[in-house]
Write a protein that binds this DNA or RNA. Structure first.
Length: 573
RNA sequence: CGGGGUGUAGCGCAGUUUGGUAGCGCGCUUGGUUCGGGACCAAGAGGCCGUGGGUUCGAAUCCCGCCACUCCGACCA
């Protein structure tokens, strides 16, 4: 490819809105161009990279006996009503009417389509296990896109769906996919990634893992143990905390005036926050009359994901109180209106003397004791883990890091096969609903993740396996007849040898060419110049290490192929 | 969905307070001199100042509406 013709505009300055490295570099290198919020065009280098990632994914999926299919982007309402997701999914799903006034939608995931297809084809247990996958555009109307390609509305995703006769078979297959995911991420050049147990959320099913790239700019919080290999998404992470040892005391009503926050009340009463109980008020989504109060120790925060799971309902923060008389700041568990849904965090269970709201303006109680004063209270874990809490497995210290979700795998169970009426004949002559797994990887997000990780202050430094071109030739002084002849000849020879080459045919200054090469990040740079040709050599520089060697012109192809091979071997190891 | 911010040339920005002929840097075109880490000289092209309305002799600038983009938060199968 000749750089002068390449559809890809580099800029010196980053777009003002780009905040994170991958977004800045992909924009500056001209790999992506925003069209609307969360919607991007990809230029040639980016598309080539996407194709190479897809090729690796296909190889690994095919090795699992996956069969590539293509589901539609636009689907009718009907199949989504069978799983009830037409109604349960909110406005992230784009719905519209076709010319005949039929309800249609844009696919944001394809469990329904997968079951619809499999249901028509699979009728016997002998056809199982079976996995189908696709690589296709999805549209999710995210409330807020950000971070360049990290969180977008339209994106290319590989999604796979497997069908099994038994839970055991699913589990066996699930862990094969798990291993394949490790290979995929390693092969595309990601380094600092881990898998974590995750909340299967609204997908249904039980066991699920997320693959996370650990990076400061990640939007997810991950809890990791410094001592053992416990790790979990913040949504499901558990931590152990110390219980303060306080003497049991009689319950006593105390005046606290205008002090409402935990800090104010504890300061006035000279108590530590660990001996207080705070109330966090939520409303059930779609019904602001239905109030839920979560009680938790004053120094902790409520983990809304855990709370939702316990309630089985969507909730939203609510800033009102339990009544006009008792606003936030004086709510307590003692003698509270019984019609209100309450949830108690386990952090409160063994504190023998608590400061609580009195459900009465300007008053709190001290000396509250759950086992004495509210013996029927049930305790759940609804606390957000903090860095420094202790590991639930080994007791070691927990830390919290940020990550980007680069893939996920779910054991779905029979949620979709049951609701959509997919049955298969078993060996015993009976019928059963196949057990499903599903497995996703976002291709664009993988590109952003690589850009985030594989880069330095000069620009991208792309892995050999997915770089759009493996070699970037920078001829200096193309007006020099010898340089011109030898540089173009080298370009031809490398191309013939099966190497992907980008050739900078512009008559620009050396600095311009070098800076563009550094920014675009091809793994090997070759300089052909009057200086190098004086000794009949070219200069080969490895982008990653910066290591540079002069190689005899006639050995250049051999030398390049050796570097390519060693870098690919390292990624495939 | 809540709270801030910004829309002026392909990109990055100044000009808006105090209304008076549309500016700068980069990039682009042409010619010349340069040539191993973002060269120099000269000459050019390129803008309905987001959009609709209002005020005014006159609006990028003042007023009102709308749209888009963006940051923080909520949300995120």
């Amino acid at each position: 490819m000749l750089l002068s013709k390449l559809v890809c505009e580099r800029t010196k300055e980053a777009p003002q809105d780009a905040k994170i490295k991958s977004h800045i570099l992909l924009s500056r290198a001209g790999f992506i161009k925003q069209v609307a919020v969360g919607i991007y065009s990809m230029t040639t280098p980016c598309q080539k990279m996407s194709c190479k990632i897809q090729k690796i994914i296909r190889e690994e999926m095919d090795a699992l006996d996956g069969q590539e299919v293509l589901f539609p982007v636009v689907m009718p309402r009907e199949i989504w009503e069978l799983s009830d997701r037409y109604n349960t999914i909110g406005s992230e799903m784009v719905r519209f009417k076709d010319r005949n006034n039929r309800d249609m939608l844009l696919g944001m995931t394809h469990e329904e389509a997968a079951v619809h297809l499999a249901n028509h084809i699979v009728s016997s247990y002998a056809q199982l296990p079976m996995m189908i996958y696709q690589i296709q555009t999805k549209f999710r109307d995210e409330a807020r896109s950000r971070g360049g390609l990290i969180r977008v509305r339209e994106f290319t995703m590989k999604d796979a769906y497997s069908f099994h006769e038994s839970k055991e078979d699913l589990e066996k297959y699930y862990y094969r996919v798990y291993d394949a995911y490790y290979r995929i991420f390693k092969r595309i050049g990601l380094k600092n990634f881990i898998d974590i147990k995750s909340d299967s959320g609204m997908m249904g099913g039980s066991i699920a893992h997320e693959f996370m790239l650990l990076t400061e700019v990640g939007e997810d919080s991950i809890v990791l143990c410094n001592n053992c290999d416990y790790r979990a998404n913040m949504e499901v992470a558990e931590g152990k905390i110390n219980t303060p040892s306080v003497q049991e005391q009689p319950l006593e009503l105390v005046f606290t005036g205008e002090d409402k926050t935990i800090d104010e009340v504890c300061a006035r009463l000279k108590k530590s926050k660990e001996e207080s109980c705070k109330a966090v008020v939520f409303a059930v989504k779609g019904n602001s009359e239905e109030v839920v109060i979560a009680f938790i120790r004053g120094d902790l925060e409520v983990n809304e994901a855990k709370l939702k799971k316990i309630l089985g309902k969507e909730i939203v923060p609510y800033d009102g109180g339990v009544s006009e008389a008792v606003a936030c700041g004086n709510i307590g568990p003692y003698e509270l209106d019984k019609s209100i849904i309450t949830v108690y965090d386990k952090s409160l269970e063994r504190v023998d003397s608590l400061v609580i709201g009195a459900n009465k303006a300007e008053y709190h109680y001290v000396g509250f004791n759950f086992s004495r004063d509210l013996p029927n209270a049930k305790f759940n874990d609804i606390a957000k883990v903090r860095g420094g809490d202790r590991c639930p497995v080994c007791g070691g210290k927990l830390r919290v890091e940020n990550g980007i979700e680069i893939g996920n795998i779910f054991q779905l169970g029979t949620k979709y096969t049951k609701s959509m009426g997919m049955t298969v004949h078993g060996a015993d002559g009976g019928e059963f609903n196949p057990i499903m797994g599903c497995y996703g990887i976002g291709v664009g997000r993988a590109i952003a993740s690589v850009a985030q990780e594989a880069s330095d202050d000069k620009g991208l430094s792309l892995p050999m396996s997915i770089a759009p071109w493996q070699v970037h030739i920078c001829p200096l002084r193309l007006d020099d007849r010898n340089v011109n002849k030898k540089a173009y000849a080298l370009y031809q020879k490398l191309t013939k040898a099966g190497v992907d080459v980008l050739f900078d045919d512009r008559s620009a200054a050396a600095g311009v060419k070098f800076n563009d090469a550094d920014l675009m990040g091809m793994p090997i740079r070759i300089v052909v110049s009057p200086k190098s040709l004086a000794t009949d050599e070219v200069e080969i520089t490895v982008r990653k290490s910066g290591e540079s060697n002069k190689v005899a012109y006639k050995d250049a192809v051999k030398s390049v192929k050796a570097i390519i091979k060693s870098q690919l071997d390292e990624l495939n190891a």
